[in-house]
Design a protein around this nucleic acid. Structure first.
Lengths: 153, 153
DNA sequence: GTTTATGCAAAGGCTTTGCATTTCA
DNA sequence: TGAAATGCAAAGCCTTTGCATAAAC
């Protein structure tokens, strides 16, 4: 099963990362990673907190923030700041590169892919001598359903 | 003088925007716009607050936030969230499109241009039916000077 | 046995909000 | 004159921090 494979993969990556950086392998950290990889799409800390609570695995918000920091550091999750003040996260391992269309009117976030972004990344690293780790491209504007709404009125 | 021309231009745009949206033309709003367009580069609310205070034009932080909202709405400024929690702003009228390279290690923000981003915007609007207003592309990684530092140690 | 992580609650920092006062139209 | 904006301070929200307790190594 693909999902299980991915879980095994990221658990191993995280384990190696913790070990080589002198961090401890606590059950909280692994269960957080499991939960993060159990869902698609974006989530914020509060939502993650709620999900773990439901599953009877209660971790503190402090530990969530701490662990997300580690997961960001080893590139297993990505953090976005779309509009509001709270950060949005999503898993990033073996997840196809994608960017975001954000509607200024209804706040909806839509994913899209464009391989040409890769050529821009390459240029940044060649021309500017920048060592690229990841990127975030957000296109802001009006989504098609808000355009339709606007026309009706 | 080009700077004065630009000032006159944006003041007019803002004035028309305020008028057609039923907002009042207060001296605070125009002096904030003037201050915003008097500098290059990024700034946060606190810095803007400090600058206006120095020039003996004291406006409250509340008014700054309020006015920045209006300026965002009429596309005269752009708001970024690079890393920290506080938003960074920059003027956006008649300012060449550019994107940002952000160093994960030292936090430095570098600008760069790549016209190919335009083709991606076009695709988003054609394929996804999205009405594009603006975009933000952030490339995260290690800047050249941090790479050099790393090699030394 | 040490040292690091967890959990709780309190503190922090940026931003928004409520309300009295002022000001634009 | 009436509605909206300003300014101040307080409240809010997300996130970080300090410290006692627990757990990894």
């Amino acid at each position: 099963m693909v999902v299980a494979e991915q879980q095994a993969n990221v658990q191993r990556i995280f384990s190696e990362y913790l070990e080589s950086n002198g961090h401890r392998k606590t059950p909280e950290r692994f269960s957080i990673l499991t939960e993060v990889y159990a869902h698609e799409g974006h989530f914020d800390i509060e939502r993650l907190y709620g999900r773990m609570k439901q599953k009877k695995y209660r971790v503190s918000r402090a530990t969530l923030y701490n662990t997300m920091g580690l997961l960001l550091d080893c590139d297993l999750v990505r953090r976005h700041r779309f509009n509001g003040s709270q950060a949005q996260f999503e898993k990033s391992h073996a997840y196809r590169q994608h960017d975001h269309l954000i509607c200024t009117e209804c706040g909806a976030v839509q994913e899209f892919c464009d391989p040409r972004i890769q050529t821009i990344r390459n240029t940044a690293s060649e021309v500017m001598g920048f060592e690229v780790r990841y990127h975030t491209l957000q296109i802001h504007g009006t989504c098609s359903s808000c355009q339709a709404k606007r026309k009706r009125s």
